[in-house]
């Protein structure tokens, strides 16, 4: 294996490695080439923003990285495991253990309390009652919602809901936190608060992959990858990351 990053870090640090990753859809008579061959390496503790206009393939790429979809061609290693050959159940296990999702629309269960929402990934991981509640409580406290645990999503503000979603994403201590337009449904002040939470987590060592089309949101990430027409257009380090615009 060649050293893809080229900066002397060991292979053990690689969380994501894709090689010639492709995803084609057949829509009627047409073949949509959403992702046309992406080579990308993301290392532990990185904070990467994927940017690009709509139609650039960033959503499809995101689904591939999140193991919600399987590639048409190419290779994808997540934390050293090749995802290409995995079965449905193994993909479910990877989504459960290795990836934490944060969505634009929060995607919380509306009838369940904040605590129960955060417990959800632990349920599918097979963690039992008391320790499960303890772990969920800990993450809610981490995102500053220790006093809102028994509230249901409709009783929470947008920012609070997204914090619940972040706690839920973190609860299984995933290798990668995957945030898809996490501020898309929030006002700019709340959006920046949420970005501060994510930046904080990254400072504590959490690897984060952020998908956004807003430059001021992407500015929180140290590294930006721009996609265009299913290919990487630019990949650069943002030296001003974390500095208020």
């Amino acid at each position: 294996m060649t050293d893809m990053g080229g900066n002397g870090k060991s292979e053990n640090d690689v969380i994501i490695r894709t090689q010639g990753l492709k995803k084609y859809y057949v829509l009627g008579a047409e073949t949509v080439r959403a992702v046309r061959g992406v080579d990308l390496v993301i290392r532990r503790e990185e904070f990467v923003a994927i940017m690009g206009p709509s139609g650039s393939g960033k959503s499809t790429f995101m689904n591939l990285i999140g193991c919600l979809d399987t590639p048409t061609d190419g290779e994808y290693w997540l934390n050293g495991t090749s995802v290409k050959e995995l079965s449905d159940n193994e993909l479910a296990r990877i989504r459960n253990k290795e990836i934490g999702f944060v969505f634009q629309t929060f995607n919380l269960l509306p009838r369940a309390t904040a605590l129960h929402n955060v417990e959800l990934p632990l349920i599918y991981a097979g963690v039992r009652g008391r320790s499960r509640r303890e772990m969920a409580r800990e993450k809610l406290e981490l995102v500053g919602l220790g006093d809102r645990m028994s509230h249901k999503p409709p009783e929470l503000s947008g920012g609070q809901r997204q914090r619940v979603a972040i706690a839920r994403a973190l609860v299984n201590n995933p290798a990668l936190l995957l945030a898809d337009e996490p501020t898309g449904n929030l006002d700019s002040v709340t959006g920046e608060e949420i970005m501060e939470v994510l930046a904080d987590l990254n400072r504590q060592g959490q690897t984060i992959l952020l998908v956004t089309h807003e430059h001021n949101i992407a500015a929180f990430a140290r590294r930006q990858v721009h996609l265009l027409d299913g290919l990487i257009e630019r990949d650069f380090i943002n030296h001003h990351a974390g500095v208020e615009a």
Partner: peptide
């Protein structure tokens, strides 16, 4: 449907 999607994203298998 949305709930099912969320559960699957959180690691629920088909059998679950």
């Amino acid at each position: 449907t949305r709930e099912i999607g969320v559960r699957k994203a959180m690691g629920a298998t088909r059998l679950n």
